[in-house]
Simulated assay, not measured.
Amino acid sequence: MPLVGLAQFFRRDIPGLACGPGGADLVQLFHCPFTHGMHLERRYRLRWRQARHTEDVGRFLVTPPEVPLLRWEHELPEPCVLHPEEVDTYPWAEDDTLPASLIARIDAWEDAQAAEHGPDTPSYQDDLSIPPGWRVGGYPSWASTGPMAVDCASCATPMRLLLAAEGYEMDAGSHSWVPLEDRDPALRGKASIRGGRSVVQPTRLRFGRDRDLHVFACPADPGHPPRWLLA
């Protein structure tokens, strides 16, 4: 069964994208359109390529593979164009992802902000550390599972986040990440978002139970198999 393409990223468009095996400068993400096993496992495939080879029209298929009949709408991505934006991200503040003293200071600051300004005040986790949506590089979000060690199965090297995919580009807890053109500046939280589903969920995809799909790569050897994690 042909795999369904989810995304492709060129290093020329995203300077922070890691280099692939043999200097590959294009990474593509696919998934099987069906689930597998009693736990309804979703299977993904990461392919590294040389961009110059993929842009040779002579190599294109005359007839693209047909997408099979799918059970759920969110299993088929909505075609869209990426507009990358470079932002600074910071580690998830839990367990030993940051020094305990710094996490305590963050917690105290959030409590003080909430007491003074109410529940819609900005928070470190939602508004300052890691943006929602699709991300290349940076730090993983551990909202569902808590921090986990992710080591390479081939050489035991701690792996780095290659990319993360999320169904929603914005939500009620991430007001600060909503683009100015997509929100009402007089409102906060989910009420401020304008544009409907096409803005909030442009790709139409969902991962797990609305979790983030994290793809980790080995920094010692990009040829080592990637690891997938829903968190």
Rank of each mutant, 00 (worst) to 15 (best):
M1Q: 05
V4F: 01
A7D: 12
Q8G: 08
I14Q: 02
I14N: 00
I14R: 02
P15A: 14
G20R: 03
G22R: 09
G22C: 09
G22I: 06
G22L: 08
G23H: 04
A24L: 02
A24D: 09
D25V: 11
C32L: 04
P33Q: 10
P33F: 04
P33I: 06
H36D: 05
G37S: 04
M38N: 06
H39L: 12
E41S: 12
Y44I: 02
Y44M: 01
Y44S: 11
R47Y: 04
R47W: 01
R49Y: 13
A51L: 07
A51N: 03
H53W: 08
H53P: 00
T54I: 03
E55M: 08
E55P: 02
D56Y: 03
P64A: 06
V67L: 12
P68I: 05
L69V: 12
R71I: 08
E73V: 13
E73Q: 14
E75V: 05
L76T: 00
V81Y: 10
V81G: 03
V81R: 14
H83V: 12
P84T: 10
E85M: 12
E86Y: 06
V87C: 11
V87F: 02
D88S: 13
D88W: 12
D95E: 14
D96C: 08
L98G: 02
A100K: 14
A104S: 13
A104K: 13
I106N: 03
I106P: 08
D107M: 07
E110S: 12
E110A: 09
A112T: 11
A112P: 00
P119W: 10
P119T: 09
D120R: 04
Y124I: 04
Y124C: 08
Q125S: 12
D127P: 04
L128M: 14
P131D: 10
G133H: 07
R135H: 05
R135L: 15
V136S: 01
G137V: 12
G138I: 11
Y139M: 09
Y139S: 03
P140V: 13
A143V: 08
S144A: 11
S144W: 05
T145H: 01
P147F: 08
A149E: 15
V150H: 11
D151R: 15
C152D: 02
S154P: 02
C155H: 04
A156Q: 13
T157D: 11
P158R: 13
M159A: 11
R160P: 00
L161Y: 06
L162E: 05
L162V: 01
L163G: 02
A165F: 12
A165V: 04
E169G: 14
M170R: 03
A172Y: 11
S174P: 02
H175F: 14
W177S: 08
W177N: 06
V178S: 04
V178H: 00
L180Y: 01
E181R: 15
E181H: 14
D182P: 00
D184C: 10
P185N: 12
A186F: 01
A186W: 00
G189E: 07
G189L: 12
K190I: 09
A191W: 10
G195A: 08
G195T: 06
R197E: 15
R197I: 03
V200C: 05
R204A: 13
L205A: 03
L205R: 13
R206I: 04
R206L: 09
F207S: 01
D210A: 13
R211M: 12
R211P: 00
L213R: 04
H214R: 06
F216L: 09
C218H: 03
P222D: 02
P222K: 03
P225Q: 06
P225N: 10
P226E: 09
L229W: 10
L230P: 00
